[in-house]
Amino acid sequence: MKYIKPAIITLAVLFIGFLGYQKLSANKAIIDEKAQQQEVKITAIPVTTTTVNSQKVNNELAIIGTFAARKELSIIAEAQGRITSLKVTEGQSIGRGQLIASIDDASIRAQLTTAQASLDKAKKDVERYSNLLSVGAISQTQFEEIQLGMQNQQSNITAIQQQLQYTRVKSPMNGIVSEILLEEGSFTNPGTEIATVVDISQLNMIVMVDERDVVKIKVGQSVNITTDVYPDVIFKGKVNQIGVQADAARKYEIAVELNNNDRQHPLKAGMYGTAIIPTGDNTEKFVLTVPRKSVAGSLKQPQVYVLKDGNIASLKNVEVGETIGDQVVILSGLQEGDQVITTGQINLDDGRQVKVIK
């Protein structure tokens, strides 16, 4: 009996081990089956296409820009003191020389009174020393020193009078008060900005033009301007400045000058408009265009894939012209009605079979 119990245990362990081996073998077979991948050969690359179209273009640039005041000046205090009164309000029209603000001038007037008294005394001294000089009681040098003292007093009064004028802040030009930065009672120092005046009787429309088009524009040429505010009105302007330095986006600033004297259709600085700038004659022409994204590679060595026989991608060299929005002008290499591939080119090579996705 003592050998029966160990034998039973041994047989149980062997049986359990056998079952575990069977289970592991079955799992391994399933894993191996899933790991096997059947090679699928893609015979046709999915692509989308578009038709080469003929598009009408003219020799004009239509560019959105912003109206800006041709003149804008900051009114700066030239005297120190407290502002005793402001004579203008924001949005008010003012003329050249009109009073904008008054600065406390009490101390300057006191200085002027003292200086005037000193000048009166100096004049009397000159008169008295002149009499002494005539009788030889003093030298010519002594008399000239007294005269110099009187002249210094006169110069001092002139300087104080100039400071007194600085306490009356006036507009240097005609325009509209666009902003007031201080209030009555504020303390100013020389150089403190009090207000801003803009002249919008003439405006500049600022547009940005890329390097390809800026060479076609000349100073003085006429420009038509349209706005969303007055959609039925065409404003007339002319190019008065062309930038000489491009910005980070390789664009140049063009300033178009126009009068703003139409009271029925007044424009304001900051509004948007569209400048229509002619770049040649006004004749219209038709050109072939394709989407920019259909051009493979760069515009310096352009190529496009053309759909042949309904399912073959044929790589063609083309010559491109200017870009019109998201379209590129094709000068040679394609014909109207050709089907060009617009997506999927990254997986293509010449002669590859494709499938057009609708």
Score class of each variant (00 low, 15 high):
80 Q>S: 15
220 G>R: 11
320 V>N: 07
220 G>H: 03
326 D>C: 05
167 T>R: 06
327 Q>P: 03
162 Q>M: 07
72 E>G: 11
273 G>T: 13
283 T>C: 09
8 I>L: 13
237 G>R: 09
20 G>T: 11
31 I>K: 13
105 D>Q: 05
325 G>W: 13
355 K>A: 11
33 E>L: 13
285 K>S: 11
258 L>G: 01
128 R>Q: 04
156 N>F: 02
214 V>G: 09
288 L>P: 01
275 A>M: 04
267 L>F: 09
243 G>N: 04
293 K>R: 09
228 D>K: 09
232 D>V: 08
353 Q>P: 07
326 D>N: 13
49 T>N: 10
95 G>H: 11
69 A>H: 02
31 I>W: 15
260 N>G: 04
179 E>V: 02
305 Y>T: 00
202 Q>L: 00
230 Y>E: 06
31 I>E: 07
202 Q>C: 01
74 S>K: 14
148 L>E: 15
326 D>V: 10
287 V>R: 00
111 Q>R: 07
149 G>Q: 13
294 S>G: 03
208 M>Q: 15
25 S>E: 12
345 Q>D: 08
36 Q>M: 09
270 G>W: 06
333 G>K: 04
284 E>V: 04
126 V>D: 03
307 L>S: 00
123 K>W: 02
314 S>D: 15
48 T>H: 06
198 V>L: 11
145 E>T: 13
13 V>K: 02
4 I>R: 04
132 L>Y: 10
24 L>Y: 13
25 S>M: 15
3 Y>I: 14
256 V>A: 04
129 Y>N: 12
173 M>H: 00
95 G>D: 13
118 S>H: 00
147 Q>I: 05
37 Q>M: 15
200 I>L: 07
66 T>I: 09
170 K>Y: 03
154 Q>H: 09
119 L>Y: 10
273 G>S: 06
87 K>R: 11
248 A>L: 11
331 L>F: 02
98 Q>M: 05
319 E>D: 09
32 D>K: 13
29 A>I: 10
21 Y>D: 08
158 T>C: 01
172 P>E: 04
281 D>M: 07
240 N>M: 04
347 N>W: 06
232 D>C: 05
73 L>K: 13
110 A>E: 06
91 G>C: 14
84 T>N: 05
279 T>F: 01
308 K>V: 12
57 V>Q: 12
253 E>Y: 06
53 N>I: 14
96 R>H: 07
14 L>S: 10
250 R>V: 08
214 V>F: 08
127 E>C: 10
45 I>D: 01
286 F>N: 12
316 K>R: 11
342 T>R: 01
135 V>T: 15
35 A>I: 06
130 S>L: 05
196 T>Q: 14
9 I>Q: 12
297 G>C: 01
171 S>N: 15
81 G>N: 05
345 Q>R: 02
279 T>I: 15
291 P>S: 06
145 E>L: 15
269 A>Q: 11
332 S>R: 05
176 I>P: 00
120 D>P: 00
55 Q>G: 04
26 A>T: 14
159 A>D: 07
291 P>D: 01
186 S>V: 08
354 V>F: 07
